[in-house]
Nucleic acid binder design. Sequence first.
DNA 1: ATCGCCACGC
DNA 2: GACGTACGTGGCGATA
Length: 874
Amino acid sequence: MKKLVLIDGNSIAYRAFFALPLLNNEKGVYTNAVFGFTTMLLKIIEEEKPTHMLVAFDAGKTTFRHKTFEEYKGGRQKTPPELSEQFPLVREMLDAFNISRYEAENYEADDIIGTLATDAAKKDFEVKVYSGDKDLLQLVSDKITVVLTKKGITNVEAYDEALIDEKYGITPKQIIDMKGLMGDSSDNIPGVPGVGEKTALKLLKEFGSVEKVLESIDQISGKKMKEKLEENREQALMSKELATIFLEVPFETKLEDHGFGDYDEQHVVNLMKELEFTSLLSKFDTGLAEEQDLEEITYDILEEITEEHLVKESALIVEVLSDHYHQATIEGFALVNEKGRFFIETEQALSSDAFVNWLKDETTEITVFDAKKAVVVLGWKGVLLNGVSFDLQMASYLLDPSLSSHEISDVAKRKAKGQVQEDEVIYGKGAKQKVPEKAILAEHLVRKADAMFQLKPVLEQELIENKQEELFRELEMPLSIILGRMETTGVKVDKEQLEQMGEDLAKRLTELEEKIHELAGGSFNINSPKQLGEVLFEKLGLPPIKKTKTGYSTSADVLEKLAEDHEIVEHILHYRQLGKLNSTYIEGLLKVTKDDTHKIHTRYNQALTQTGRLSSTDPNLQNIPIRLEEGRKIRKAFIPSESNWRMIAADYSQIELRVLAHISGDEKLIEAFQSDMDIHTKTAMDVFHVSEEDVTSNMRRSAKAVNFGIVYGISDFGLSQSLGITRKEAGQFIERYLSSYPKVKEYMDRTIEDAREKGYVSTLLQRRRYLPDITSRNFNKRSFAERTAMNTPIQGTAADIIKKAMVDMASRLEDEGLKSRMLLQVHDELIFEVPEEEMEKMTELVREVMEQAVELDVPLKADVSFGDTWYDAK
DNA sequence: ATCGCCACGC
DNA sequence: GACGTACGTGGCGATA
């Protein structure tokens, strides 16, 4: 069957413009509307698979409707120039896709669409109309569907007759009557004053049309309403006329001329490249095109490495495919410096004394990508890499942590230095990943090293301009080596302990499962939210409190509210809790424990979070349970790796709030920390204006939640959730907090202002986070950016501080010749394993180093504890 | 393989 | 009044 898609060009372009932030490409051309439009276009092509397509635009300013009513569309805001300038680009994009476009003097896009749609319907086409304008609903019939944008650009809703009936209770034709009565402020159609959507629909359901309503004025209840209708007879009829889409626009072309399907992909790809729509390009086969773009590169495959090749300033690739780099295979090396470009096979490299010694040399200045990975991988092979001076990934991350990729190929593209293919193109991905033949591998690695060699001075210069050089050289670079050592050291676990807990849990889970199935009156998978939802809310008839996109919500906060209604609920909560412990922690940890050493080697990602914190994977050792005793016991399995050693855990007390006190300079907060008060009690005193004795546990709980909110930048909504109060109350609460701490309020305002001016916020050690949404017209986006602006300097500075403490700690351990080892970092906490004889010294040293990491206007406080296991160090 | 839901930590 | 609301990682089930 033939299918015609008609697009209301102006409407969709407007929609895209306002839905997206004001993107521009490198040349400074605004592209957000074109981008949104193109996204929509691709979606339509993919989903509708139209045989015919046409995009209609409004032509000049006046149309035949202005003869009827001069002020038609009066009072409209002028199209922003940032949008106007994009229309030619939209047209260009349509031409690239070989899609017809049409505009006609005197007529609006609606009329063109209406004329074509009805014509096509007669010829038995299936017709889809895309717009953001409800007016078009009048066209709907059994052949014509109108798809309206809902929110954003690709979130749409398709209206057929049934849906219009469901939503409005009228037929498509009556949409015109509805507009006639209620008017349309955006088009400046007056309608009948005092009649809105509700009244219009009521009248239409009773009488059927504007004309019938006017004939039957005497039957209408309400004196006012009668008067209004009487007075505005003509206006109502005129409004209806204005809202009616004209279906006989004269065309020079035939419907058949607007076929779609044959277009030059390369043309589209080129235009998208020019506009920098990289995310959209992935849908096209650009691989070939990119390969053609690569210029030749020359290099040598080194059979013998000599001093000649090993100069001080070099870029080095240590190629490892797997992200999971512990004991991974090295695929090859590439070396680029002023002497040339070289590829070296792994065997060759590692058996060359000259090369290995060069790697070990601390005075070289090697540029790598992901220093930690290189150091760890080589470390497992017994090779030391000591001369790393520049980590390209780290530099890219510090310059802008929000970039979704810091891969060499992407940095190279961004800075237009060197030509590198993406790793995925060379190796494939997932199960299909494999190493290509030597020549291809060698060239790829050389290209990467070559790009790094060129990129290093560029990024270095940017770091200097940003005043981030010290952060880079003195903090993150040394830390990456330290983290690598921590990962390689690993932490020992008591496997038997974990296995024992696992058996215990398994038994209890079986019991709970039986109980739940019995109470439910049948067996089902408790782990499936879908099945669980059906049991709870359909079979057992409990009230569904919250819905998710795909069905009923069964989250813990929902279940807690249902606990009183049915016995089954508490068992489910318990089942969930134990199930989580068993699958994620017991089974999860056992899976990643090395068989021979019983050690776990996590990996820290040092170039990922937006705030400067680390993250940890395989396994994540930063979310081992602690809150509930049941889960906390998992920590009993983390033990020292040598006999007669113990665990030390040291955590910063309220580091974020201390940072806040420092950067805001608020006297009350500073005083509280100088006198080492319980900060939540202090907050309760200040917010509720009571003395210390009069702070109830509830007040303290609320104060704690507000402090939590300040630290994590949550919204009034977030606070209302955590305290179980209304959003309004939560909002008032936050206001009370801010008026209690005026300097904090000043800090918040100043930071937002700052972010607006500069486009980014920074931490104590000059870490940056860019916040483009801070000027967004979208309330949510803007609010989110504002909260981020306030929160990032706090959380990010805390991250800076503990990182500094780690670097200091590592040098102290070395300077003092201690055997103790730093094992883990959990955001505000450091874990060590310590020989018995160093315990006394270490407890003091750790405290001192952490508290002296930086000097603030408030003291930093670290609590140090120890025990035979991580659990006991509390 | 990828998405959605849920749950754990700070 | 919109609209969806700290940062992460991982397991599971459902779906493609």
